[in-house]
Amino acid sequence: MVFGRDSESGSPRYGSGGMSRIIGGSPLGVIVRLALLCVIVGLVLDQLHLDAFELFRWAMDALEDLIRNSADVLKLIGRYFLIGAMVVIPVWIVLRVLRVGSGRR
């Protein structure tokens, strides 16, 4: 219940509902805090001569570089995996065959 009574003080409790728990407080209070934060961040970014679209473009370029570089890393890891598997798998098979042949498990 959003407007319930606190059992200890008898005062109304605001923000005890599901929506208030999800967003972190009363909806109006959260909207006011977010609006104030947006104005402050906008002012700081403007003073630093940073454009939101430029920041977005930078983030997209960084994500693109990350994907491109991670593909190269995955290729390298795959290559190392295949080279190692060419040695490890036959050795493992030989050891399993020898272990089964000796009667141990």
Results as ranks from 00 to 15, higher is better:
Ile31Thr: 06
Phe3Glu: 05
Gly78Glu: 05
Arg13Val: 15
Leu50Gly: 00
Leu43Cys: 05
Ser20Arg: 03
Gly18Trp: 13
Gly103Pro: 03
Val94His: 06
His49Trp: 06
Ala71Val: 13
Arg5Phe: 07
Glu64Ser: 06
Arg57Ser: 14
Leu43His: 02
Gly101Val: 01
Val44Tyr: 02
Lys75Trp: 12
Phe3Ser: 08
Asp51Asn: 15
Ile31Tyr: 09
Ser70Val: 01
Gln47Leu: 14
Ser7Gln: 13
Ser26Glu: 15
Val41Ala: 06
Leu50Phe: 08
Val30Ala: 07
Val91Ile: 09
Ala85Ile: 03
Glu8Asn: 05
Val41Thr: 13
Arg33Gly: 04
Ile22Thr: 04
Leu55Gly: 14
Gln47Met: 10
Ser7Glu: 15
Leu55Tyr: 10
Ala52Gly: 09
Ala85Asp: 06
Val100Phe: 14
Arg105Lys: 10
Leu28Ile: 08
Asp72Thr: 04
Leu28Trp: 07
Gly25Val: 06
Gly25Cys: 04
Leu98Arg: 12
Val41Cys: 04
Ala35Val: 13
Gly103Glu: 01
Ser26Tyr: 08
Ser70Lys: 00
Leu63Phe: 07
Val94Met: 12
Gln47Cys: 10
Tyr14Gly: 01
Arg21Ile: 02
Lys75Ile: 07
Asp72Lys: 14
Val87Trp: 06
Glu8Tyr: 08
Ile23His: 03
Gly103Ser: 02
Arg99Asn: 07
Ser102Gln: 02
Ser70Trp: 04
Ile77Arg: 13
Val41Arg: 03
Cys38Asp: 14
Lys75Ala: 11
Gly29Arg: 08
Val2Phe: 10
Leu63Ile: 05
Val73Glu: 05
Phe53Asp: 08
Ile93Lys: 15
Pro12Trp: 10
Gly18Phe: 12
Gly4Tyr: 04
Ala71Met: 05
Tyr80Asn: 04
Gly10Gln: 03
Pro27Cys: 05
Ile77Lys: 11
Arg79Asp: 11
Ala62Met: 12
Met1Trp: 08
Ala71Pro: 00
Pro90Thr: 02
Ser102Leu: 05
Asp6His: 14
Ile40Arg: 13
Asp46Glu: 01
